[in-house]
Computed example of a mutant assay.
Amino acid sequence: MSSPFGSAPVSALVVVDRAVSELRRGLDVVVTDDAGQRLRISAAEYATPDRLAGFSGADARLLLTNRRAATLKLRPLIGDPVALPLAGQLDAATIASLADPTVDLDHPLRGPFSILRRAPLAAEFAAVKLMKLARLLPAALVVEAASTDDGLLEVPASAITGYDDMAARGLRIVSDARVPLADAEAARIIGFRPADGGIEHLAILIGDPSRREPVLGRLHSECFTGDLLGSLRCDCGEQLRGAIRTIAEAGGGVLLYLAQEGRGIGLMNKLKAYRLQDQGFDTVEANERLGFDPDERIFRPAAEMLRLLGFDAVRLLTNNPEKVAGLKASGINVVERVPHAFPANNHNEFYLATKKAKSGHLL
């Protein structure tokens, strides 16, 4: 398959992007691996009696991440993900509720559930990863694909597990425009798109920073509720506008606006996490109950964006040591961590305290 972006591995990227689209539309796909496994998969959160008709084999199972399985007190766990046989124990309503922790408190005495005590297959790991890429809950229905499934899209497990890295390596600049901002009139917005035409990231270039010395920069993950609506549950909006002001006052730099909503879990799942927080769980516990890691973000795209802009060293505005480590691991020299914190309010003080205590933020 040819690409307007050159020699990037577009075929593998495109088939994953197509699989993401199919799953989000409620359709099934087939995941294959090097061991010869062909698994038909479906999003568990869409489970209905009609959908389960395609998952009636003796080997049909529900995949949950270890994070979610631990919440449900499933023991012992062997590998990640964990597989629960469907036969005789799981109907559509139970499957949907096991995938979605926002209803856990409505079903306090579920189970016990049996699990398959074996190491997960490569195709099973990839199936759950694909749910994450689709910004769905990380829970999948799987069954050995039948010959009648030949019309379904097939995607290699290796393409799924390698997608993040391939998409980052395939980033290209596709747009560049002057956009004067309230706190930085000398600003440009530069758009980056992966080779498969997937989700774009943005850079806000302020002034004309030198490429011969470390640039003052910030990595900012998009936050619809905080950045656009001014939500008081987080400090994202303050961090975004504060970083733009700081960079402008310093004479120039760059802010990378990364399409990694909700620490990489997506807006819909972030709203579910907010509901869990209203039930008494902190921000880390909420993500883990959903089946995610506390932080699902990757920083390879940011490193590639900096390189494409001509920067290989940065003075990073952040209180998150993982951002420093992530950029360094991707080949960017972080010469200084510049503190970037704002006062708490009555709505986000527990959130900020949790980031400090559990995520190591330097607040």
Results as ranks from 00 to 15, higher is better:
Ser7Val: 12
Ser359Val: 04
Ala273Trp: 00
Leu63Val: 09
Lys272Gly: 00
Val16Ala: 04
Ala127Gln: 05
Gly264His: 01
Ala313Ser: 15
Arg245Phe: 09
Pro321Lys: 12
Pro214Ala: 09
Ala248Gln: 13
Arg307Gly: 08
Gly291Arg: 02
Val128Cys: 07
Leu181Gln: 13
Ile173Thr: 09
Leu39Thr: 06
Asp28Asn: 13
Asp17Gln: 05
Asp50Pro: 07
Ile189Gln: 10
Leu72His: 04
Asp104Leu: 10
Gly237Val: 12
Ile41Phe: 01
Val174Asn: 04
Gly151Leu: 08
Ala134Cys: 05
Ala344Asp: 10
Thr283Asn: 08
Asp183Leu: 15
Arg172Thr: 10
Val254Glu: 07
Ile298Trp: 03
Pro120Phe: 11
Glu213Gln: 15
Arg110Ala: 11
Tyr46His: 14
Gly252Met: 11
Leu153Gly: 03
Leu219Arg: 07
Leu276Ser: 01
Glu200Ile: 09
Gly310Phe: 06
Pro321Ile: 09
Pro85Glu: 13
Glu249Ile: 11
Ile190Trp: 01
Glu45Thr: 05
Asp50Trp: 12
Pro49Asp: 14
Phe125Leu: 13
Glu45Lys: 06
Ala159Thr: 05
Leu39Gly: 04
Ala203Lys: 04
Gln277Asn: 06
Ile160Met: 03
Phe113Trp: 15
Val324Thr: 13
Ile204Arg: 05
Arg40Cys: 01
Gly170Tyr: 00
Ala92Glu: 03
Lys132Thr: 05
Ala8Thr: 00
Ala44Glu: 02
Glu45Ile: 01
Gly360Val: 10
Arg51Leu: 14
Glu45Leu: 06
Pro49Ile: 10
Asn320His: 12
Asp293Gly: 13
Thr71Tyr: 01
Phe311Glu: 08
Leu229Thr: 14
Pro209Ser: 07
Pro214Ser: 12
Arg118Ser: 15
Ala134Val: 04
Glu322Asn: 15
Leu216Ile: 13
Leu98Pro: 00
Met166Gly: 09
Glu249Gln: 15
Asn345His: 09
Leu72Ile: 03
Leu52Gly: 06
His347Ser: 13
Phe113Asp: 07
Val143Glu: 12
Leu52Trp: 04
Arg135Ser: 09
Gly226Pro: 11
Pro156Phe: 03
